[in-house]
Design a protein around this nucleic acid. Structure first.
Length: 481
RNA sequence: GAGCCAUUAGCUCAGUCGGUAGAGCACCGGACUUUUAAUCCGGGCGCCCGGGGUUCGAAUCCCCGAUGGCUCACCA
């Protein structure tokens, strides 16, 4: 860096501008390669970052990278003249330059641009990481993602794919008549999910606000308002632990469709995954961390009670009291909370014995009422709801239900949640009177679905950690030394 | 929050039994006009994550801390 600062000083003294300005590119690098037949022998202007230099005395080869890829430049003293050749030679790896030159093919067959004119557009003051090993230090890769992106091509590819995935989801829903909307990020009540919120404060109104933990309750208000198909794909925030599958702020899509139900949401889920995989990867058969995953619809469907029967060998289908359920939990060494009822025990067994089994895409439906305060009851067995979660590579990717639209039932469910909260569960839902008022105006029967976008991107880009699909993941504040 | 592991040159990594710090790439100087991890010759490069301790002597052993990774817990 010291040497580069000296070079910068020298340039400034000579009256040269190391920080550039507008530069007209005639082509991107890969366009030159793609259109070589037409461009052979013609002039082009290119711009990008110097990523490799191979000097041969009075001639030099340079790899110039732009957003599309690499182009080899050939720089010769007898073309540029001695002085300007020497100027060029003083450039460093990492510098951003613009060039004008003639397209040709080298003896070795590589399409190359013979440089006729070159100008420095930006001086890089810091040296790049090792050209061969790249940047591996995970801490720095996440904290200084810009460096990661400069040197690690596969990282760039992952984030380009992420954007394509999100675009394909929008396309899929827009084609089905869905309306994309924006609802508030700051809520006076953090509802719609079981999670602890981030808390902030509005000074002028002197009121506590929460960053949203879900999109649910506002989107359902829009169903009341007459938007029959809506979705929002955006950030939500949960004040919880960080892991390879959890980031405190993450991207979620929730969609709601009037006159649909849980089964309609199953169809839309499997079709959406298949559509997106096909658009972005060209296939519905993918590999995740060495395991073949087949996203082709239809996916397996199994009830939660049947799953527990199959994988834990425990039959919870019969009528039983909360005490009996808790006793059963104890016998199987399932850790329980004092506030738990039958429904929590069912969920506990499911999480302990079943979740890890669902490698291939699977809908698990029929969640207990106690853990599903916003879902319609199962008409045949009111202990359960018309709700499903779906699992791929043993990870929950999303959650859906036939939406509860009975305001009287909804009020009771909220009251039950408040009891849980009083019993010590600080993630239980809060009462939202305005939401109940909205339901009282009439919300059409509807199916609703939420999908964790980051996990979906992990799956489709074969990345092991959520931090590999979030450009700037949350990191602990590094202590200043 | 708990356990285990890691942290050494700009980057990727070695460093044996505790004895004055090493390689490749990058960088600097030189040679070289079709190379592509170019090659060849020469050179400089260090708060060994931080702070204590043990020791004649610590990158190395011990303790505390920071940051990261993995696993677990939490979290649908």
């Amino acid at each position: 860096m010291q040497v580069r600062l000296e070079k910068l000083d020298a340039m400034l003294k000579e009256g040269k501008n190391p920080w550039g300005g507008k530069f007209e590119k005639s082509h991107d690098n890969t366009e030159v390669v793609a259109n070589f037949a037409d461009l052979d022998g013609k002039e082009v202007t290119l711009a990008g970052r110097i990523m490799a230099v191979r000097g041969h005395g009075k001639a030099t080869f340079v790899d110039l990278h732009d957003r599309t890829g690499k182009m080899q430049l050939h720089v010769k003293a007898d073309v540029l003249g001695e002085d300007r050749y020497n100027d060029f030679s003083s450039l460093d790896l990492g510098d951003i330059i613009g060039v004008r030159g003639k397209v040709f093919r080298t003896k070795r067959g590589e399409i190359t641009v013979q440089v006729l004119e070159a100008m420095l557009l930006t001086k890089a003051l810091r040296p790049l990481p090792d050209k061969w090993h790249g940047l591996k230090d995970v801490d720095r890769r996440y904290r200084q993602r810009y460096v990661d992106l400069i040197v690690n091509e596969d990282v760039r590819d992952t984030f380009v794919k992420r954007t394509k995935i999100i675009k394909a989801i929008r396309q899929f829903l827009d084609d089905r008549g869905y309306l994309e909307v924006e609802t508030p990020v700051m809520h006076s009540l953090a509802g719609g999910a079981n999670a602890r919120p981030f808390v902030t404060h509005h000074n002028a109104l002197d009121m506590t606000l929460y960053l949203r933990i879900a999109l649910e309750l506002h989107l359902k208000r829009l169903l009341v308002g007459g938007f029959e198909r809506v979705y929002e794909m955006s950030k939500v925030f949960r004040n919880e632990g960080i892991s390879t599958r959890h980031n405190p702020e993450f991207t979620m899509i929730e969609l709601y469709e009037a006159y649909s139900d849980m089964e309609g949401m199953m169809e839309i889920t499997e079709e959406m995954f298949a559509y997106v995989a096909k658009e972005v990867l060209g296939t519905t058969k993918i590999t995740y961390q060495g395991t073949e995953i087949d996203l082709t619809p239809p996916w397996r469907r199994i009830s939660m009670i049947d799953a527990i029967k199959e994988y834990a060998g425990i039959d919870l289908s019969g009528q039983m009291t909360d005490e009996e359920a808790l006793k059963l939990a104890k016998e199987h060494h399932l850790e329980v909370e004092p506030s738990w009822s039958y429904g929590h025990v069912v969920n506990g067994f499911f999480e302990k014995y079943c979740e890890e089994k669902f490698i291939q895409p699977t809908f698990v439906y029929g969640h207990p009422l106690a853990i599903s305060p916003l879902a319609k009851k199962d008409q045949k067995d009111p202990r359960f709801t018309q709700r499903f979660e779906f699992f791929i590579v043993a990870r929950e990717h999303g959650n859906a239900f036939s939406e509860l639209n009975d305001p009287i039932d909804q009020r009771e469910r909220f009251l039950d949640q408040l009891k849980e909260r009083e019993a010590g569960n600080d993630e239980a839902h809060v009462m939202d009177e305005d939401f109940i008022t909205a339901l009282e105006y009439g919300m059409p029967p509807a199916g609703g679905l939420g999908i964790g976008i980051d996990r979906m991107v992990m799956l489709l880009t074969d990345q092991p950690s959520i931090r590999d699909v979030i450009l700037f993941p949350h990191m602990r504040h590094k202590e200043k030394d």
